[in-house]
Each structure stands twice: as C-alpha cells, then as structure tokens.
Design a binder for these strands. Structure first.
Lengths: 341, 341
DNA sequence: TTGAAAGCGCTAACAG
DNA sequence: CTGTTAGCGCTTTCAA
C-alpha cells in the first residue's frame, strides 16, 4: 500500500475530507469522537498531509530562507544554528542559500519568496537580495525580510526600512580599541573585513572614536583591508610586518582574521602578547582555545538568531514590528592575547 | 499591481495558460514567435511561477533536505557548503535540519519527504531518520536518501541498502596510528567520538590494526570516550593526564577534539610535540593555524558533498546507482604536532 | 502548434 | 458539528 492521501483516509473512515482536515489542524472544531477516530486512523495508516497541497491553498509555506555569504564561517554557522532551532520550534523549516558573496546568487535566493517557496528571508548581506530592476519597479513589494548583523547600504534603503538585528558595532569597536589604548598601546594597526561592509565601517568608526577620546590622531596608514577569513588574517599580517614601523597592537575585526594573524606572528617569532597584542571580534568557539587565548568581543549568537526569527515571523504574520532595529548587548572578553605595553 | 499569476499573464497575451507554461518550461514545443512573446512578457511583468502549484502538479519539489547533528561543527559546515553549491547548480534548494542529535528531531526531518517538502535526504547520522514503527511497517517505502560519512547501524540496515559517501575510516585510522608508531610511540591514548558511531568504531579498528602490525598489544585502558567537540577534547585530556601512566601520544578522532586537547596540554605545561604528540582527524581549516599546527587526516570535504548530491539526484531520478558506497581518498597531513619520541 | 479542461491534495466558506 | 463545494496555480493530457 502506497502513501495515503486525505481522500483515501476520508473514504476509509466514511467521512468527508473536510472533517479529516479539521480533526488534524483544528481539533477544537470537531467532536471528541471524531477527533479521536481521525487521529487514530491517521497514525495507524501513516497518513502524512501533503504540504504542497496545503501551501497552495493557504499561501503559506512555513519555510524561511536564510541568505548567507559563507556558511562555513564559524560565526555565521553559530547564528544559523540558532535560527534553525528557533524556526523549528515555531513550526518553520529553514532553507538556506550560501551565496559566496555572488550577487546573482543572492538575487536567486531572494526570489524564493515570490516563487512561494518561502514566506520570508533572513539576510546576512548588506545587499538586498533583489535586482536593481526589481527595486526600481513600481510594482515591487518587499517581502518579509530581516537583516542579521549587517546594515543595508544606504542607497538601497531609500524609503524602505528593513528590520535589523545586530550588536552596536560602533560601541564594540570603540570598546575594544579603548581596551588596547588603556593598556598603553598607541600604534594600533587594524585588519578590517570588506571595507565596504557596514559592520567594518562601524567598527572602524568606533576605533576612531576611541582614538579621539584618547587624544590621538587617526592614522590611515595603520588600516589594512582584509577579509573575514583565516587566510586574510595571515597574509595581511605579513603586510603589516613589512611596514617600516611596527605597531604594538593589531585589532582584527573578526576572530578568524585574528587567528590567522596570531599564526603569522608566531611564524615570525613575534610573541603575543609580549611583543604585540592582538584582539579579535565575535568570540567564536575556537577563540579561547588558541594560544594565546584571544581577547575579543563576544556577540550573542543565540540571541541574534532567535530574534531574527521572531521578528521575521511577526512580519510574516502581519504584526507591525515595533522596534525596527534590535541592538543586542556585546561583551568584551579579555583573555591572554593582550597586555600592557 | 500585485504579483501576477499564469492566468493573468495568459490573459494579457490573449493566449492559454498552457502556452505560457510551455513557452517557459518546454520552449522547444512552441513556435518561435510564441516563445519570444511569452518570455518577454514574463520578464517585463516580473512573472514568477508559483512553485507550490507546480510542485503539487508534478509531485517534485526540487528541494533536498540535509539532516545534520550540528551545523556549527566545522567539518560538517564544510560539507554542507559543498552540498549547497552542487545542489544549487543542479537546480535544487537545500533545506536543512540541525538535530542536535535528538532522535525525534531526526524523525521529524525524515518525514519531510513524505509530506512532499523535499524529494530526498542527505543524512549525517548513523540512524535512519524514521521511527521504528515506520521502519517495521510493511507499507513503508524508503525515500531517496544517501548517507554522508557515517555508515548506518547494521540493525537498521536489515535488507536495505543505502548509498554512502565516505572515506575509508579504517584505513585512515590505521594510517595515522602508524604515523605515530613509526615515530616510536608505544603508549598512544585515543580520544574517540561517540563510541557507538560507526566512524569512531572504524577509526578505532584502524588503530588496533596498526598496533597489531607493529606487534603491539591493544590496551583498552588507553581508549577514552569523548565527543567531536572542543570541550570534550579539553576535558578528556584532563582525564588522560590524571592517569598514573602518561601516554607519549594522543590520537584524537576529530580536529576539534585535538584542538581542545592541545589547549589542555598547554594549560598543564606539557609541550607538544616534545612531551606528547597529538594528532587529529578531518583537517578543518583551523588545523594548520594552531600552534603547533596539527597533524591530521584530511577529508575531501568538497568531493564528499558533491558526490552526496549527485548520487541522491540519481536516486531521485530513478537511475539505479551503480556504486552504492563511494569511498573517497583521504590524506595524511603531517604538521608540527607530532615528532619522534 | 495551440487551447480547453481536468486535476494534483488540501483548506475554507457556506449550508445544513 | 459535519458535509458539500470551490478553488489555490500550475502542468498535462486530449482534441482541434
């Protein structure tokens, strides 16, 4: 006997398909006897409602899509995990799209709401996952979407407001720079992520703010553009070491970068923290296991993921979202990669 | 103007919905003029076919689900990424389910093929994602499924054969143990993963084989059950250190474990590799950046992911899969965490 | 080559 | 409380 549908089940029980549907989805709207009879039969026959049928009818998929540049990034995968867990608790499945930063790929995934494969989008990119043509079009309607960690580029925002869940990157950047400053460091090199990304810009702004508060001049020559990867951390550090003047501290805007940096420093027999202090950003799970254990800014990965989902589901449900931007608390985590000069 | 459906588009063009559908999906079956007219109009109006409607009709979703115990595991997320990329190239989307090892959760995700949310499953667990009741039932039909890296427990296999993509864990375990043996190590402690998991059992078997080849006796007291996590690596190493006799080498069955191990060793002022040699398994991206850089067994993450998808799609398409088990080559990567005794 | 019409499996409006 | 009925948007016969 193959898979059974609602019709067959109804026929077996000698009732209408409507009753089967109700007994299963709105049990309070049928008699106790009916409910029990249907539920037992469903279990016994192994009846599984075809979600496509239901989705088509209800125009809801109970899927959300998360668009992410790199799922193998340790920080991202932490957030993803939390997203999946929360969504699953709320009866939603998570589709995910790893875009590798490719614009066409983002757009392809962004389309999945319009093709009714998903009800909403969580986006880790600073680009909206829609083509310019779409965005400019009059009949473009923004699907439910929330941004995780990355603010959208302002030009795309024009007249639109997309919910955002993030930490205060400016404050965090400022805090960790201040930590270094308080330790007496004056020449603090910075390894950024993609220089165009808002998170990088914001953290950099925080760094400048801290400098100013300490009465120091900002020196652009100390800013090195990198990427949020181990490799970039390693190669950019090499660049820094080739400069005539060596900084006493390196501020990395992501832990993977910092770990790559630590590696290269060790390769070059520069010891951390006695010769150079290094800090990261994110507090990925590896940070405390490195040697030296990394001083960094912890982001509330679980909360970020959870809030993204909750806000998205509110938008999907048509509830107006009171707070368009949710700023979650970060925390400076001081370990062994920094010391007073 | 809201989103447009096939009917509206057909009406606008003054043709039937059938022609629209054909022009878009089977362009070779309509006249050139019709094809062009429809495709232009589709682009111009921003028509996006509702996939639910299509899925319902064709009984295909173009989704695959990947069931995974922990997406934030660095090795897993690498494979996932490759799965996603391959699937996407082939026109499939990836739904994913992070089960945290919870049986009910596995089963829930396993159900998604029967509820027509996905066409097939890639599974990272050694359990089939179906309830015992289902498995025992006569009218249970195994959906398209392939296992990644983990062989199924034999009792579940009874009479079923599920494709598997993996490395040869026995050979890999044997090789890395031999590496240690060749270096003169005789007391080699092992930190395993979940002792019930086939990959652990196989790697352990490899270890025993290598011992035997070296004419050594297997000592069960040297085997410590851990988990595939940093924390377990750290805490289990503490256990090992509390034993009266200290081994000269520790073989960890996963890199995260090994990294946790390295950490605890350093905490206890035991230097690697001069006091103790340590090896891992997987060659996650962090392995070479640790200090000391980790000697390990590299798994072909990209190939594993790609093959899983390709085989799964073959099964979905009803092609008989010639090779039920695909063994991919691993590679011993010798770095700085091991040295001759 | 095209159109008309049926129907995938389900839910919801309406009656009874 | 339950049944009848009408689609959701698409693809695919079948006929023209």
């Amino acid at each position: 006997m193959a898979d059974i549908g609602i019709k067959q089940l109804a026929k077996i029980l000698g009732i209408s398909t409507a009753s089967v549907s109700r007994a299963l989805n709105n049990p309070e709207r049928v008699s106790d006897a009916m409910r029990k009879r249907v539920q037992d039969a469903a279990k016994q026959t192994g009846y599984r409602p075809n979600k496509m049928g239901a989705s088509l009818r209800t125009a809801k998929t109970k899927n959300i899509i998360v668009i992410i540049p790199d799922i193998s990034d340790t920080f991202n995968s932490g957030v993803i995990r939390s997203i999946e867990r929360t969504a699953s608790d709320r009866g939603y499945s998570v589709l995910f799209g790893d875009t590798q930063g490719i614009r066409e790929s983002e757009i392809g995934y962004g389309d999945m709401v319009r093709t009714r494969q998903a009800d909403g989008i969580i986006c880790f990119s600073h680009n909206l996952p829609f083509s310019d043509a779409d965005l400019d079009s009059d009949n473009f309607k923004m699907p439910p979407i929330v941004n995780s960690c990355e603010q959208l580029q302002s030009l795309q925002l024009a007249g639109r407001s997309i919910p955002l869940v993030t930490i205060d990157n400016v404050a965090a950047g400022r805090e960790i720079a201040k930590h270094l400053l308080d330790l007496g460091h004056r020449e603090i090199a910075v390894i950024t992520g993609d220089i165009d990304s808002p998170s990088t810009q914001q953290r950099l702004l925080g760094y400048k703010l801290a400098l100013k508060e300490a009465g120091l001049e900002f020196n652009p020559a100390l800013v090195f553009e990198g990427e949020y990867t181990l490799e970039a951390g390693s190669s950019t550090t090499l660049e820094i070491l080739s400069e005539p003047q060596r900084p006493s501290a390196i501020l990395c805007m992501c832990d993977e970068t910092a770990l790559g940096c630590l590696y290269t420093l060790k390769e070059n027999n520069i010891s951390v923290p006695s010769d150079i202090s290094v800090v990261g950003f994110d507090d990925i799970k590896f940070a405390r296991y490195f040697s030296p254990a990394l001083t960094t800014v912890a982001q509330p990965v679980d909360d970020i993921g959870r809030q993204c989902v909750e806000i998205l589901l509110d938008v999907i449900d048509g509830k107006s979202v009171a707070q368009k931007t949710v700023i979650l608390p970060h925390k400076l985590v001081i370990r062994d990669s920094t010391q007073a000069i």
